[in-house]
Measured scan of single mutants.
Amino acid sequence: YDEVAAQGEVVRKLKAEKSPKAKINEAVECLLSLKAQYKEKTGKEYIPGQPP
């Protein structure tokens, strides 16, 4: 859960800094992968601010 939240912060920071699109896309792919792992382990969708 904490990893997903941390990666979400990374994506937000990159977007706020107007980073190159390729770098943002890479961070988003990582975030989506973490969300998929979270769902696989818990059986639930990741919802920000609602730990399992």
Rank of each mutant, 00 (worst) to 15 (best):
E3G: 00
K35I: 04
V28K: 12
R12C: 03
A16K: 10
E9P: 03
E45P: 09
A27Y: 00
E26Y: 02
Q50W: 04
C30S: 13
Y38H: 06
P51C: 13
E45D: 13
P51F: 10
K35L: 02
Y38I: 01
L32R: 13
L31A: 09
V10Y: 08
A16W: 08
E40G: 03
R12S: 06
V11C: 02
I47C: 13
L34D: 09
E45C: 06
T42D: 02
E9D: 14
A6D: 02
E17W: 01
K35A: 06
A5F: 12
K15W: 08
K13D: 03
K39G: 02
V10M: 08
I24V: 12
A22L: 09
E3F: 04
L34M: 10
D2P: 14
K41G: 05
K13L: 09
P48A: 12
I24T: 05
G43N: 08
V4C: 13
P20C: 09
L31T: 05
G43W: 00
R12P: 01
L14I: 08
Q37L: 09
P51V: 11
L31H: 06
N25V: 07
Q50D: 08
E26G: 03
Q37R: 11
E26V: 05
E17D: 07
C30H: 11
T42Y: 15
Q37S: 13
A22Y: 07
P48C: 05
E9S: 12
K39W: 02
Q50G: 11
Y46F: 07
E45G: 03
V11W: 02
K41N: 10
P51L: 13
P48H: 10
E26C: 06
P51G: 08
P20W: 01
V11Q: 00
C30W: 10
Q7F: 00
P48Q: 11
P48L: 08
P51N: 08
G8F: 15
A16Y: 09
Q37T: 05
C30M: 15
A5Q: 05
A36C: 06
Q50E: 15
K41W: 06
E17S: 11
G8N: 13
A16T: 10
E29M: 07
G43M: 04
L31E: 07
P20Y: 01
K23R: 01
E29W: 00
G8C: 06
C30R: 14
L34P: 07
L34H: 06
K18I: 04
E45W: 00
V28A: 10
A22H: 04
I47H: 10
L14H: 05
E40R: 06
C30L: 14
P51K: 11
A16D: 14
L32M: 14
I24L: 09
